[in-house]
Structure formats: C-alpha cells, structure tokens
Amino acid sequence: MGTVTAPAAQPVREARRRRVPSRARGLGLNLVALLLGIGLWALLAGLGVQGLPGPVRVAHRAAEVLGDGTLEGDALASLRRVLLGFALGTALAVPAGFLMGWYGVARGLLEPWVQFFRTIPPLAIIPLAIVVLGIGETPKILVIALGAFLSCVISTFQGVIGVDPTLVNAARVLGAGDRVIFTRVVVPASTPFIVVGMRIGLGSAWATLVAAELIAAQQGLGFRMQQAQVYYDLPTIFVGLITIGVLGLLMDRLLLLAERRLGGWQDRR
C-alpha cells in the first residue's frame, strides 16, 4: 500500500512546501507596497500639495482621537451598522441566488426585480429611506443590506448556473437525487462565487454606510469626516479614511480565510 499512496501524496506535500514561500513572498510585497505608499504620501505632503497633511501629522491626530475615545466610538458605531447590514444582505442574497439558479420559475419571478434595483444606486435610495423610516439606525442598515444583497445575489446566481454540467450528470448517473446534487455538488462549486459576491458587497456596504452617515447620523466615521470638513480639518478626515480602509481590509481578509477553509479542495495558483 505504501508504494501506491506515496506517489499520490508526494505532489500534495510539494504543493504545500511551495505555498509557504509563496505566502511569505506575498507578505513581503505587501510590506514593500505599504512603505512605498507612505513614502509617496510623505513626499507629496512635503511638497505642499493642496495642504495635504503628512503621515506624522495624521498619526498625531489619530493618537489624539484615540486618547479621548472619539475614534473608538465612531469606529464601533460604523462597524456595527456595516456588520448588521452586510449580514442581513448576504443572508437574503445567498438563498435568493440559489433559487434563481436552480429553479427556472424563481429565476423568472426574481431576476427582473434584481436587475431593476441593480440599476438604482443604493445611495439614491438613502433620501427615500430617511423620509420614510426616519433618521434612526433602521434606514442606514436597510440601505447597507440592499447594497450587499445586490452584489452577492448576482454572484451566487452566476455560480449556480456556471456549475459544470458534467459534474451534475455524473452525480445523477451514480444515483444521486436533487437534494444530494444540490448540497454536495452545486453548493461547493458555487462557494468561490459567493465569496467574491460577499467581498464586493462588503465594499458596497462601507461605501453606502459612509454616505448614509454623511446625511443623517450623530456618531460614526462618516459623520466625523463631515464635521471635520466643515472646519477644514484634513488630518481628522484622513484618520477616518484610514480607519475605514483598515477595517474593510481586515474584514476582506477574514472572508478570504473563510473561502480557503471552505474551498480547500480547489486548485489554487
């Protein structure tokens, strides 16, 4: 048995050994890109480009708002809205995408509405949501959920209809029913598309959130940047932008980690 399994296991071990240096190289390139970006930023600030604040000045402002708790409160308020809206949008989008891809009747009923609302930017719905639902948390979360839903549902739908028919036919030949085919073939094959849709939806959620907070909010990163704009407080605006970018990047990396766990059976470059 050893002579049979060893050759099969050898390529797997070699692939794992190659993956570790590849990840280290990728992290090194990420660090280089970060340093180059900060260096370019400092250079432009030193040249006095439109009063652009430098990294040191922004770092000092970040330390100030961290010290008095302002940044923590704003970040938690925005993060809570994004998480609630994003979770609601994706929780609705994944089943809807599966239904549209698996059942022709559901596709005929749902797809026209999905395509219709996709042509309307979520930002355009914010004034209507505020007029109808007020200026509380509900309209913000619903608009964020809509942005995440529209991004994820199309990706899930494409994942389902893009499943290789050979896999489905092979499962049917082996005696699998629709439920087994759906859970064992369609869902795993669609996972990468779902994650891509969730990543796009996450970006849409953050963009929609900031716009909603600019219009009506008492706390949040978008609200704080709007207040800073009134007083031409560029360092505070940069602190808000960087915080949003860092939080969004961390959430995106968590989605990638989940995708690797769920789609570990797939070949990767």
Rank of each mutant, 00 (worst) to 15 (best):
L221A: 06
I244Q: 04
L209S: 10
Q115S: 05
G240A: 04
P235S: 06
A9S: 05
A96H: 11
V49F: 12
L123K: 00
S22Q: 12
V4D: 11
T183Q: 12
L27E: 10
A212D: 08
V56F: 10
G37A: 12
G39I: 07
L83G: 04
R80N: 03
G134P: 02
L250Y: 08
R107W: 02
P53V: 06
G263W: 00
S155N: 15
A207I: 04
L128C: 00
L44H: 11
D68E: 14
A59W: 11
I194F: 04
I154G: 05
A228M: 00
L29P: 00
L255G: 05
R57G: 02
V185C: 08
Q229H: 09
A211K: 03
R16Y: 11
A45K: 07
G222V: 12
A205M: 00
P112D: 11
A33V: 12
G28M: 02
I244W: 03
Q226T: 14
E137Y: 01
P121Q: 02
P192Y: 07
G222P: 05
F182K: 07
I242W: 07
Y232A: 09
T166L: 10
L27Y: 15
L254N: 03
F157G: 08
R260H: 09
L110D: 09
I200D: 01
R17K: 13
P127H: 12
R23L: 11
L71V: 12
L34H: 07
A63V: 14
G220V: 10
R172L: 00
Q115C: 02
A189H: 10
T138S: 02
R23I: 15
V246A: 13
L209Y: 09
V143D: 02
E14K: 10
G197K: 01
G159N: 06
W113I: 07
G101M: 03
I244Y: 07
V94D: 05
V187A: 14
V168E: 14
T166S: 12
T191E: 01
G222M: 06
Y231N: 03
R80T: 14
G101S: 12
S190D: 06
K140F: 00
A207Y: 03
H60L: 04
P235Y: 06
V65F: 10
T166W: 05
G97P: 01
R268I: 08
W113S: 13
A205C: 01
V131W: 05
V12Q: 10
F86S: 02
L40K: 03
V4F: 10
V153Y: 07
P165I: 10
L221W: 08
G67I: 09
R23V: 15
F98Q: 04
V185G: 11
P7K: 05
L52S: 12
E259A: 01
L44P: 09
G69F: 08
L123E: 03
V230P: 00
L43H: 13
V32I: 15
L92G: 15
V173I: 15
L262N: 08
V4P: 00
P165C: 04
R269I: 14
L209N: 11
E14T: 14
V160I: 15
Q219V: 13
T156A: 11
A106C: 13
P53A: 05
F117G: 04
V239S: 07
D178L: 04
L34M: 13
G104K: 14
L142W: 08
A77I: 08
V210I: 15
L241D: 11
R23P: 00
D74R: 00
W206N: 04
T119M: 08
A129R: 02
R18V: 09
